[in-house]
């Protein structure tokens, strides 16, 4: 199982990765490896985990503990699901921790975008 084979990664990655992501607050400041893990959620749970009025649970601003508990209970089957069980089992513990750090570092409310630089110039 990937989850167990990769467990050695944590030691190799060291604590600095998690320190780096814990204070991200925006995606542009997040660690690339955390972004990589967390982007897999967005196709259903919304960009950066922001979603409203949907059957899918918003992830932005979710506490680290709640995120990890959810993924662990999906993975071991104690929390019933349609597809989250198999998906949770396919991610490593380190990826789940990185996702949890990333989403918990984001504000619950989606900030107004300040990225618009130019727009339609055609």
């Amino acid at each position: 199982m990937i989850r167990h084979q990769v467990i050695g990664w944590a030691a190799a990655l060291g604590g600095s990765l998690w320190l780096a992501t814990a204070h991200a607050e925006t995606s542009r400041d997040a660690d690339p490896q955390a972004l990589m893990a967390a982007q897999t959620c967005a196709g259903c749970h919304g960009t950066e985990g922001y979603i409203e009025g949907s059957a899918y649970v918003p992830l932005a601003g979710m506490s680290r503990e709640r995120f990890i508990n959810a993924m662990e209970s999906f993975a071991d089957g104690s929390r019933p699901s349609t597809l989250m069980g198999p998906l949770a089992r396919a991610f490593t513990d380190e990826e789940i921790a990185a996702m949890a750090d990333y989403f918990s570092s984001l504000p619950k409310e989606r900030p107004e975008e300040t990225n618009a630089q130019g727009g339609d110039d055609s």
Partner: peptide, 17 residues
Amino acid sequence: NFLKLTGASAVGAGVAG
């Protein structure tokens, strides 16, 4: 891939902030 992963992460962590 393991080496690539750790290498990339080290860079990411090193310049974070």
